[in-house]
């Protein structure tokens, strides 16, 4: 196992509001890390710092031995290797399903249009939507859109995938399909950082669970350690609330 991501003393402030208060986090290659925590605790912000959708205020984020927190880094090149899936899917509304997946590989000259189309169809097949290649984004359900969004992120062949509450905006019956796709990815050995409220998913798939509250990591460990023997009081509190609903 080698270190894929190493976050050291990461601080992020919005104006006077300190959202991340010195985060230290390491993600090994092929590891699945699930971040849990109450709303507003800074989980999403932490995730968005990992591909610099948010600019870190201080600290370092080393990915494959490159500190991306520095300003002289070609962030576009870094992002090509980090796929991201959003809570609200963010599919390109002006493009068809196929075009959504092909856009980045073609525009960034990774692939020809023909090859990209073949790959797009292949990816759609893996998320169970091969017949939707020509469909418009608007014609898809939320679950379908999210699976297309995962396919889109995979099209650049990233070696890290970031998931920002991928199932929070979905109707309950759609959640299973999306989680199934994510489980497959994990099985194939993808390095994944997932922010989610799906504790079932965390228990089943996560190699490690990280509990974030108030901009700090309060506890981390295997799913068993976190869910069965939580030490931190606030973690116990949090688990009580969400598991006993």
């Amino acid at each position: 196992m080698s270190e894929k991501v190493k976050v050291t003393n990461l601080v992020k402030t919005f104006g006077d509001n300190e959202v991340l208060k010195g985060i230290n986090l390491t993600v090994q290659k092929n590891e699945v890390v699930v971040i849990i925590g109450p709303s507003g605790s800074g989980k999403s912000t932490l995730l968005r710092n990992l591909n610099k959708l948010e600019e870190p205020t201080s600290g370092s984020i080393v990915i494959d031995n490159v500190d991306i927190a520095r300003n002289d880094v070609d962030i576009n090149a870094v992002r090509e290797n980090i796929g991201m899936v959003f809570q609200h899917f963010n599919l390109f509304k002006n493009l068809s399903v196929g075009e959504n997946i092909m856009l980045a590989p073609v525009e960034l000259k990774k692939q020809t249009k023909d090859k990209a189309a073949i790959q797009a169809k292949q990816l759609l097949k893996t998320v169970g939507l091969e017949e939707k290649f020509d469909a418009t984004v608007q014609s898809l359900s939320g679950g379908q859109q999210q699976r297309v969004a995962i396919a889109r992120a995979l099209a650049m062949n990233p070696d890290i995938m970031l998931f920002d509450e991928p199932t929070s905006a979905l109707d309950p019956e759609m959640v299973g399909d999306v989680l199934a796709v994510m489980k497959d990815l994990a099985k194939q050995g993808m390095t994944m950082v997932v922010v989610t409220h799906e504790m079932g998913f965390a228990k089943e798939v996560a190699d490690r669970v990280v509990f974030v509250d108030d901009g700090q990591i309060l506890e981390e460990g295997t799913p068993e350690q976190i869910f069965e023997h939580p030490k931190n009081e606030r973690l116990q509190d949090f688990l009580n609330k969400i598991l006993n609903v």
């Binding site: 576009n76 959003f86 963010n90 525009e107 960034l108």
Partner: peptide, 24 residues
């Protein structure tokens, strides 16, 4: 979110603008 999604794929600002934001 459209701009974020484009940028997260590694598209530079100009390309994201031309291909995704402006058409909409």
């Amino acid at each position: 979110g459209q701009m974020e999604a484009s940028r997260s794929l590694g598209l530079p600002f100009g390309k994201a603008m031309r291909k995704v934001i402006l058409p909409q």
